[in-house]
């Protein structure tokens, strides 16, 4: 599903290396946790996957799409195939829960009929029934993150990238979100989760990739958080 082959990303004139010859493979339906200290290269890795950044060298293939041959005008189409969840939610503040979720379908050109039948199902999946007409500022952090997850999965992407989705949440809400991600994974979506939360990493018993100083320093099938 995801393949990185000796991917290097450097920044600036002094060519400071954010990622250094990183190679990894993620199979379909896998749940992978990426850990590492701040500045280790986790965010750069995710930015490369969403094509916010281009690698300095190396090959990236996601869902059969080789980024080397991907023209800029097709990047929006690629991003519609990948669901992304952020630590700071990135919701549209002036739109309701329903509108935020529907937005992801509207940009893909889906008809109003399709949207009306799809959104309620996702709202139910993330447990926000009854809050469809609330604005983001009327929701708790955990609820906002659920909206963000609903928006990310409403198009049924093959891959869901969750960039520290529990970073701004208390432990209870953090676990709610993690359980939701597991549920989405169970339905067949490959999940890539980055987190600093050792408890979540240790309890989930999933594949853990540790990145330090831009390099993959460990890749364990049922890993734990390395301090």
């Amino acid at each position: 599903m995801i393949l990185l082959d000796r991917v290097t990303k450097t920044y600036g004139k002094d060519k400071k290396s954010a990622l250094n010859r990183v190679s990894l493979h993620v199979a379909p339906n896998e749940f992978v946790i990426i850990v590492g200290t701040s500045g280790a290269g986790k965010s750069t890795l995710l930015k490369l996957l969403t094509r916010e950044e281009k690698p300095t060298s190396g090959k990236i293939v996601v869902g059969g799409i080789d980024y080397d041959t991907l023209h800029d005008k097709f990047i929006p189409l690629l991003r519609r195939k990948i669901g992304v969840v952020f630590q700071d939610f990135k919701l549209l503040p002036q739109r309701t829960v329903y509108e935020n979720i529907a937005f992801a379908l509207e940009i893909a050109g889906m008809t109003n009929h399709e949207i009306k039948s799809t959104v309620p199902k996702v709202v139910e999946l993330v447990g926000l029934v009854g809050k469809e007409n609330k604005f983001p500022h009327q929701l708790s952090g955990g609820e906002r993150q659920r909206v963000a997850i609903a928006r990310a999965v409403v198009r049924q992407p093959k891959i869901l990238i969750a960039d520290e989705p529990t970073g701004n949440l208390d432990p209870k809400h953090s676990w709610d979100i993690v359980r939701l991600l597991e549920k989405i994974n169970k339905y067949g979506t490959t999940v890539l989760l980055t987190t600093h939360n050792a408890e979540i990493v240790n309890k989930l018993k999933r594949r853990v990739i540790t990145i330090e100083h831009g390099k993959v320093v460990s890749d364990q099938a049922q890993g734990s958080y390395r301090q």
Partner: peptide, 16 residues
Amino acid sequence: REEIEMMKLIGADKSF
């Protein structure tokens, strides 16, 4: 600008 950033990341076209 953050809204624009988010729209880009979820796959909205420039024109949209």
